[in-house]
Computed example of a mutant assay.
Amino acid sequence: MNILTLWFHKLGSPPTFYRLAGLLLPWCYGIGLLLGLVALYSGLVLAPRDYQQGDAYRIIFVHVPAAWMSLFAYAFMAANAFIALVWHIKLSEILAMASAPIGAAFTFIALVTGALWGKPMWGTWWTWDARLTSELVLLFLYLGVIGLNAAIEDRRQAARAAGFLALIGVVNLPIVHFSVNWWNTLHQGSTIRLMGPSKIDAAMAWPLLLMALATHIWFFGSVLMRARIALLQLEGGKDWVRKVALDEGAAGG
């Protein structure tokens, strides 16, 4: 067993993960909050008005990062579900299920802010556009995973069943992403591109990218927090959990 394998094996140990997550949590929340506030101020106050949409476009500084996170969180959930199903790693089950409500929240925010943006731009709150519809399907997939996980009493069986559903739903991710290219939709295409020139001014792009970074960091903090709670519930009778309870009780007292 090489050093890298040993490191991953140790990281997958519940006590080690619990302690490491506890150390990372305040950093994730603190940095995520700070970057998010800077990004919001820069986007809502400092960024120039759009020559076509005026100030209405500023909702992109919430909408676009939330939409990106809805896809990223699902990919993270599905990847951990795959690892859990193939290698039966308990921690991956926990991480997959911990990320589902967070991803659902980002998807809901993306849909709501999209509707708020669509009303002045398209003249309607909702249309059965390919991008909007596939994003709504993504929300239903998240809710399905959450519901299935909650419906089965045995926590590990629940995580496996919900993880299998999450893997089936992966097919929707490219549909969401490429829908504006595959179909004639009202939704605009990508404005920031990794390959080729972007269609957005740099003064607008950097707050958007900063907000995306902030949401990713906040996401990991939220996943770590939920995973720690789930780990304590799952491992409730173990010696290390009792030791943690005693240590935290002593620190709190």
Rank of each mutant, 00 (worst) to 15 (best):
A96W: 01
L143P: 01
I168W: 15
D129E: 03
T113H: 08
D154I: 11
V137N: 02
A130D: 01
A75S: 13
L143N: 07
R155Y: 07
L91D: 02
L95N: 03
A79S: 14
Q157D: 11
I83N: 09
L116K: 08
A96I: 07
E135I: 14
I94T: 08
S134E: 07
S134W: 04
A166S: 13
H177F: 14
V170P: 06
V180F: 09
N149C: 10
W122M: 06
A100V: 07
A105I: 11
F82S: 07
I152G: 03
R131F: 06
V86C: 00
A84T: 00
G169D: 09
A166M: 09
L116H: 07
L165A: 11
I152S: 00
G163R: 02
A162Y: 02
V171K: 10
I109A: 14
L167Q: 06
P120M: 05
I83K: 09
V176E: 10
K90N: 12
I168Y: 12
F108N: 03
A151S: 15
E135D: 11
F106I: 01
A81R: 00
N80Q: 08
D129L: 04
L173E: 11
W87M: 11
I102L: 08
A98R: 00
L116P: 05
W182E: 08
P101M: 01
V176R: 05
A100D: 00
G123Q: 03
R156I: 15
W126D: 08
A84D: 01
A161I: 13
N149T: 04
A159F: 07
L95Q: 02
T185V: 15
A150G: 06
W183T: 12
I89Y: 14
N80R: 06
F140N: 07
N184Y: 15
N172Q: 10
L136P: 08
L85A: 11
E93M: 08
V86R: 12
F178Q: 09
M97N: 12
T185D: 10
W183K: 13
I175E: 05
A166G: 13
W126Y: 04
I94C: 01
W126V: 08
L148R: 14
A162E: 01
A115F: 00
F164L: 15
A79T: 13
I89G: 10
V176T: 09
W125N: 09
L132W: 03
W183G: 06
N184D: 15
A79D: 00
T124A: 15
W125E: 07
P120K: 10
A110Q: 04
N181M: 14
A110T: 05
A79V: 12
L148D: 03
P101S: 01
N149V: 07
K119R: 15
A162M: 03
I146L: 12
L91T: 01
I152Q: 02
W126S: 08
A130C: 07
W117P: 02
A150S: 13
F108K: 03
F106A: 04
R131T: 03
A110L: 06
Q157M: 13
N149H: 14
Q157H: 14
L139D: 03
N172P: 11
L141P: 00
I109P: 00
L167R: 05
T124S: 14
G169C: 09
I89T: 12
L167N: 06
R155E: 13
P101V: 00
W128Y: 09
N149Q: 13
G103Q: 01
A150R: 15
F108G: 10
F178W: 14
